[in-house]
Amino acid sequence: MRGVGAVLRGAPRAATGLAVLGAALLVAPLLVDDYLLSVILITLYFAFVGQAWNLMMGYAGQLSLGHALYVGLGGYAAAAFFVHFGLTPWAGMVIGILVAAAFAAGIGLLAFRFGIGGVYFALLTIAVAEFTRILFEHFEWVGATGGFFLPVENREINDLLMLRGSPAMFYYVILAMTVGLFLANVALIRSRMGYYWMAIREDQDAAQALGINTFRYKMMAVVLSASLTALGGVFLAFYNNNLFPIDAFGIHRSIEIILAPIIGGLGTLFGPILGAFILTPLGEVLTWALDQLGVQMAGVKHLFYGLVLLVIIRSLPGGVWPWFARRLGIEGPEARP
């Protein structure tokens, strides 16, 4: 916790704000209706996967545009073992993480060994995600294009072991995951690995000259980010109770994951969380407004996200968080655009 303390040092307003936010999130299920709770829940989910993606892009500087791959792999693996063998998702999650980690290691090995970097690396991540989507569209064991469904039996009884239960239970699970990942990131970014990632992001040649095995540390970033994203995928699959290849692996899903950290602030600890809290509610308000107006247009939401992204990048190139942090009186890396 020394790390969080350091971030908030000399910023009492930020510390108070954080405490209030924490308390509000803790009691939210008692205060808000099911719909609002589901919005906060999805916001927390995007904060979780956004943080996972940010480790790789924001800190290690490796752009993945195919992160839905890991959401899908994690979700499908845990769901399949649950449905077919009755395996608890807490064990299924390990399988999902291993599969996702293996895919990530494959991509990393291919890219970093053969010097595929930058745009080509990003294209490779898209290609593997698309390839996997097509694979799953023919994968009968998990329902192929028809989709794969988890039984929804009893929403009254909270079975944490099998991750079956009420929205409030899912809410607390994702809240714990998101806060847990945030605290883990605080420690990680202040460890040798965190500094080595940032060195690689800033200048690979200089990093290597300082004794950093860039291949090894990039691989660790990719595998760790993928594993955490897969964990998010397990949660999402058990919350939604259904999986479709296009919705699990599609490029639009990958883009959704990266919007919050970009808007919030790449390479900052709070950025992905703030970004999710800005973007997801805005998207909901838009959906509601369009409903009221009777407008039925596919893709309007994505168009809107694109616009928000454009506006933010033009006015606050480092994202909203660094700007906000400076206003709160926070200094150091979190406030640097």
Partner: peptide, 18 residues
């Protein structure tokens, strides 16, 4: 080749982590 986005201290710290 400084690490432009990092503080001067962090630049040197990364070397010291060797």
């Amino acid at each position: 080749k400084p690490f432009y986005g990092l503080s001067v201290e962090d630049n040197v710290l990364i070397g010291a982590l060797r």
